[in-house]
Computed example of a mutant assay.
Amino acid sequence: MEEFGIKTSIHFGKNALEYLKKLQGAGIFIVTDPFMVESGLVERITGYLEKDRCTIFSNVVPDPPLELVIEGVKEVIKHRPDTLIALGGGSAIDEAKAIMHFSRQIGNLPDMEFIAVPTTSGTGSEVTSFAVITDREKGIKYPLVDQSLLPDTAILDASLVKSVPKTVVADTGMDVLTHALEAYVSTKANAFTDALAEKAAVTVLRYLIRSYTSQEDFRAREEMHNASCMAGLAFDRTSLGVNHAIAHNIGGKFKVPHGRTNAVLLPYVVEFNADMKEFNPRAYTRAAEKYAAIAQLAGIGGGNVRAGVKNLVREIRKMQEQMKMPFGFKDCGILPEEYQKQKDAVAQGALADACIRTNPRDVSREDILELLKRAYQGIR
């Protein structure tokens, strides 16, 4: 027997932020980054609240480190708020999740409401039980997985992503596509997660370039914001695959943005999982059939499964080119000597990553090293 449920209440569409009016009179702890404060975006949140009851913790940085989580936990225990709000991209939400989780455990604060307000369209973290925290000394990213990390409420307001710069739109958008495709071919996928993953993937293929091209295309920004959430709902149930297993370790070692890392790897991982070295129309893998189904739904499919997979890979690379993204890690600034020094550690870390367990094809150390070799050079 399988089960599918959604714990997080999702508020989206016009005036979604008005949900915050319900928090009048509550003690609020807001976890965000300095830019949200400097740009005035945090005032979009506090404007619905009683400002004298708000504490703003703006010590969020990309790839949140353990020491900032500890600092945040101390502040939450000190203020004992009724509600914790995460405002920002994946790093802010991940840091807030870890702060919330450990505050509840250490400080005995079980009744706090946890609200996530994403300001990028990429991680889907507002509806997942995952968070990634970095140990800077060891250069390792630790995925946390626990149902207690799920926000109680997610607020999707596309006006908050209207001014996101093009490079961030590209990185986060390709992250959404990777989430959707890995969830879709996961060994834990089911009919309900497939529906969410299909919708998310097709939405990205139709709207990401529009969102990248124009900040004024509100429809495209809104579609991408919703797609990010749907992909998050899917992979929270299915987990991910080798793409993320490698990306977590590349990010920890080389500081390449997570979405960009996923984008570089994605075409190679799709080809690897599809496993179509030999032409045998009777022996297509389940992953190949599902990739081809996505291509068909997006209007880029071919006459058979093989053509559909190839067209999907071609479309991913076309999108990377249109958004001026790197095709290989060499173009991300990773020096050859650093790559050679760290590749074995990356492979070892990827094999130990929990995401690899649900990859649709078994993965060996040699497979990962080959994927890394191709992805480093951008071999097409």
Rank of each mutant, 00 (worst) to 15 (best):
D217L: 11
D344W: 06
E337F: 12
F279I: 14
V42F: 05
K166P: 04
P267T: 02
E2Y: 11
G303D: 07
I115M: 03
V127R: 07
I368F: 00
Q348R: 13
N108F: 13
T8K: 05
K330C: 00
G259K: 06
E67F: 11
M319Q: 07
A293K: 13
K22N: 15
E71I: 05
Q24D: 08
A183T: 05
E223Q: 15
E337M: 11
S148L: 14
F4V: 06
G251D: 00
T358L: 09
N108Y: 11
I250A: 00
T134R: 04
E366Y: 04
L68M: 09
V313F: 12
K253N: 00
V132G: 00
V73C: 10
C229I: 15
K14D: 07
G259T: 07
I316H: 10
F329D: 01
E222H: 14
D367L: 03
V363N: 02
L196G: 05
A354T: 03
K277C: 01
S91V: 09
H258G: 00
L20V: 08
D275Y: 13
Y284E: 15
P62D: 02
E2T: 12
T83W: 06
T119Y: 11
V242F: 00
L196C: 11
L149E: 03
C229Q: 08
Q340N: 14
P281T: 10
V169H: 04
L156W: 13
K343A: 01
N359Q: 10
T32D: 02
N15M: 10
A354Y: 05
Q340G: 08
P151G: 12
I115F: 07
S58Q: 10
L233W: 10
G251L: 01
E3F: 07
S148D: 15
K141Y: 04
Y291A: 10
K51F: 03
Q348S: 06
Y207D: 14
K277S: 04
M224T: 11
G349F: 05
F12Q: 10
T134G: 01
E113L: 14
I10P: 04
S364I: 04
V313E: 10
A195T: 05
S239E: 11
Y142D: 06
R104M: 14
V161Y: 06
T83M: 03
S58T: 02
F235Q: 03
T120E: 07
Q24N: 14
A158W: 13
G139E: 02
